[in-house]
Design a binder for these strands. Structure first.
Lengths: 335, 335
DNA sequence: CAGGTAAATATTAACGTTAATACAAGGTGG
DNA sequence: CCACCTTGTATTAACGTTAATATTTACCTG
């Protein structure tokens, strides 16, 4: 099975220096003369040395690893975010440990514990349930920096997030301006305590001088196109019947569009449909979807920046900060 | 920043046993009497102990970690696979380290080296380029089991994969039976040495008694809907003009459908369109897409099973095995 | 009751690093 | 020219676990 891999000791013996000198040389210490370093580096290359990060972590109590917990990678938005996070971190020399909670707090808790047991230097979380975050707060309090990627006010934690409420607010402003007076909102987040979008919607309606009755909020079962499709039965049964459906993500909206096509409901003439996230598919559905952009890239970059700065200069940290990104509308044909 | 976390030593002192006894107790050794174990477990809970896996890894030289390299998480198929892999492994008590190669061998190499430096117990890879796999072979040869999730014949490595060639073969059988005689194939894999699907297509055409000229293979720039859309200019300029377009993934096909709608080409009447992967969106595009299923779940489960069995019983391993899953066609409206 | 075995626990040495000192040699300044 | 830095290197002790032996105690057997 091949020789055991080379260690610092092997290099030390081969190069004729002490183990620690080798360690210093490989870490580029300025305390060593050029020549010594060269000899050692050459030997290291010859032996095909690469460091054992486990040992390094143990000795230095810094693992150069970040944990990422995501609710559901199947969501293209979170996929994008995970992707960017991985790229950014890997450029910064960090490895990524990855876990999904499936929206269940128990899983999330296990994942975080796992991460802690691997001594991760920091944790990025899309929380499963914003009402249950004790275990997250505990991790932060115990000294492992945490950054939330969804806004949880008063969590006492660092937050970098899209302003979801503002996104929904803008979306409903648009719908109101377009003359709609009766709305259905399919909110996939309600079941996990995420009411931002519903709240934003309601605010916009109030501001437009409409009655709260003009908005019906429905909680679909999952985040799939199938479940958006299924909800349309209920939407069409409402009285008065809405003229606009807003879904809290594109994939739900896609299901809505599909239902409309199959049932001869013209979009946007008979029914306006709006999504959320601006995933790639939104442009290519039965009707190009008007949606709210989710700047996954920006969130990821900012989130990574924040966690790294907390890790690298723990002193310059002055308590948690909330940073909310304002989302843009993406106008296409479905409204 | 909170107390430093409890170690075995702390428990040992609190419980009045030696450090090693504590270690044994926590690992459930049968050599200890029930009572001792209870005392120790109680103390451990009281101190909120959880193991330091870094230390454990170093001592036991097994990290209970698996590395996963994927070419592009943005691809919903790979997302699904990554998701299932993570779930399966986490159930088996393994953590997952995650990296994307972006289809670049250099990145893949770096990722694998990173994994090795973290002493992962095994590696699952969607290889970036099947012509450059020395570094993967090297990892396996050096004692870290590797399983490829894409077929690379004669790699000398374990393989669990969808039979991509057979999928394309079946797809073209279908198209031929439907009476088509002139085909365009948008192959997103060509640029990274992945010719399976093109080969399968050609075989089917040959078997149907058609001339090789009836198939035009085009290499789109990326794996996006936009690039599928862009390629349609070229497809329509072909002479004779094809009556069927086969794209090697759904997202490309989605772009094709979009082009057709915008340019008044009726699908499937004027143009048959087929995709590959059976991603969720394929059912909800401008026209429901006929496609080839990619059993991401099955691949993932089998891949995880294989790597775990190699880790857990290295002795019962009799050299690399190739396991190919036969894909099914999914018939919808676009053909 | 000597001798042996088993059960329960302790001791010691790894694992491969980093970090904190320690030491030697050679130069410099008062 | 001796005390004192500086420069280059070596030594030693962590880090928190597991693994391999040791040791003690208790019990059983002939």
């Amino acid at each position: 099975m091949g020789r055991p891999r080379a260690t610092l000791k092997d290099i030390a013996e081969a190069a004729g220096f002490s183990l620690n000198t080798v360690s210093l040389a490989l870490r580029g210490s300025p305390r060593l003369p050029e020549k010594t370093r060269e000899v050692i580096l050459k030997e290291a290359r010859r032996l095909n040395y690469y460091p054992n990060r486990i040992a390094r972590s143990l000795a230095s109590s810094a693992s150069k690893t970040i944990g990422l917990v995501v609710t559901d990678v199947t969501n293209p938005t979170l996929t994008m975010a995970a992707h960017t996070i991985e790229r950014e971190l890997s450029e910064a020399g960090y490895a990524v440990m990855f876990a999904t909670s499936g929206g269940r707090t128990a899983n999330e808790k296990r994942a975080i514990e796992l991460f802690l047991s691997y001594l991760v230097d920091g944790i990025l979380v899309y929380p499963a349930d914003r009402k249950q975050i004790d275990h997250i707060q505990a991790a932060d309090a115990a000294g492992t920096p945490v950054v939330l990627l969804v806004d949880v006010p008063d969590s006492g934690l660092d937050v970098v997030s899209i302003d979801l409420r503002a996104g929904a607010f803008r979306a409903f402003e648009l719908l109101c301006e377009a003359g709609h007076r009766q709305f259905a909102l399919l909110d996939g987040g309600l079941k996990v305590g995420n009411t931002d979008k519903s709240q934003g919607a309601m605010e916009a309606i109030r501001q437009a001088g409409l009655s709260p009755d003009s908005l019906t909020v429905l909680a679909p079962d999952g985040q799939s196109a199938a479940s958006g499709y299924a909800m349309m039965e209920k939407v069409m049964a409402l009285d008065p019947r809405p003229t606009a459906v807003f879904a809290t993500n594109d994939i739900l909206a896609l299901g809505v569009l599909h239902w409309c096509r199959e049932n001869g409901v013209a979009v946007p003439e008979d029914m306006a449909v709006m999504g959320y996230d601006n995933t790639e598919v939104s442009a290519y559905g039965a009707v190009p979807l008007t949606t709210v952009n989710y700047a996954a890239d920006e969130i990821s970059r900012l989130g990574v920046g924040r966690i790294l700065s907390r890790i690298r200069c723990p002193d310059s940290w002055n308590g948690p900060e909330r940073q909310l990104i304002m989302p843009e509308l993406v106008l296409r044909g479905s409204v």
